[in-house]
Nucleic acid binder design. Structure first.
Lengths: 196, 196
DNA sequence: GACGGTCTGCCTACTAGAAGGTAGGTAACG
DNA sequence: CGTTACCTACCTTCTAGTAGGCAGACCGTC
């Protein structure tokens, strides 16, 4: 119980990379086996089925996201800075090609063809991000850190859509800089007008 | 040559539906065979390889899009109305579940794992939509039909990202209405201020 | 502290079915 | 007669998943 087996972590990590490339149906146990340096059958020892593997992966992805959000909120008081931090996180991921696309964005597009257990986990991720962004919008609106033109939950969904849409465009054009090009005016629009 | 074989059209149509569900790796010739009522091998007669099939599919998808754009521009003079029309098109598709997701959006997320011939066709689609939206933005800005806060091509990318992001959210939540909820303020923001 | 038992992590070897694709034949049609 | 559209039958490779074995770590018990 000392630490959660390094191997299963390696399996999850390589699965994440593979899903980022081609989604749920775009990778196989054989692919993971090559990367991790373990036999195909041994992966089944850690994750009985593919659905188990991806469900666990998405679950952890959400938990990690929740943890990141907590530390972000602790270190950054201003709501606008939080949104900038969130956008910045993705800017870096996309630009250094380390995590150039959100796993859950890809899985969400495949939703209708996903095993139900995975699908529910993916929608749970979206609900989490959405409700978190809503609280940020609400707080920022009250404190004056953000200038909203719609209700907080609408602004939250619009911001989320912009981020994920921008991620898609960056991938489609093969130009990482497209992401921040789109996000910059979106953040600007939420910035209180100091020249007023 | 009378009309392009109905069968190959049926194959393309069912492939489109299947891709909308699960992407490039989410369907097989066997799936199409079941829907169309033709043997697996007969599909190869029309489309030698899977990549051929999807490349042709995306190519036609773009051509159809270009044709739709032309008629839209002919019938609708106002730039804002064009953007509303474009958004409306997707609203209807998503709400009646006829085409609840853009084929190219799904393929774009899978880009790194796509056969190159398909990938280039997908990026071509995005370049087309992007450049078209840019001309709409430019025209609307000059005529006063649109109120832009950034350069036309940036506004175009931002609008496109919003549309595709909203499409993803609608799918992720399983709530079609989310799409227009996000698009409404985006369009509002582009509307010239009459109360000024 | 040696002894037997269980648990863990991995292996080889295998299966059944699905994947994309091929070979070759047949019937209709201009 | 050649072309078109479809068929049956087949091939290879890949798919997720199973069966069973084996070495080592961990375990209390004598």
């Amino acid at each position: 119980m000392s630490n959660l087996s390094t191997t299963s972590d390696a399996i999850l990590a390589s699965a994440r990379n593979l899903i980022m490339r081609g989604g749920y149906n775009g990778f196989s146990y054989a692919d993971i086996s090559e990367v991790v340096g373990i036999r195909k059958a041994s992966i089944h020892h850690h994750f009985p089925s593919k659905a188990d593997l991806v469900r666990e992966l998405v679950q952890r992805y959400r938990e990690d996201g929740q943890a990141s959000v907590v530390t972000l909120e602790q270190n950054v008081p201003d709501a606008l800075d939080i949104l900038k931090g969130y956008a910045d996180h993705w800017t870096k991921c996309i630009e250094d090609a380390s995590r150039p696309y959100c796993v859950c964005a890809l899985l969400a597009s495949e939703l209708p063809s996903l095993p139900p257990e995975v699908a529910t986990e993916v929608t749970a991720f979206f609900r989490f991000i959405s409700s978190w962004l809503t609280t940020v919008m609400e707080r920022g609106s009250k404190s004056g850190a953000l200038r909203l033109t719609s209700e907080p939950h609408v602004e939250a969904e619009a911001f989320l859509a912009t981020v994920y849409g921008a991620m898609l465009s960056a991938r489609a054009y093969g130009k990482p800089e497209v992401f921040s090009m789109i996000l910059a005016p979106a953040l600007n629009r939420l910035t209180p007008n100091v020249s007023h």
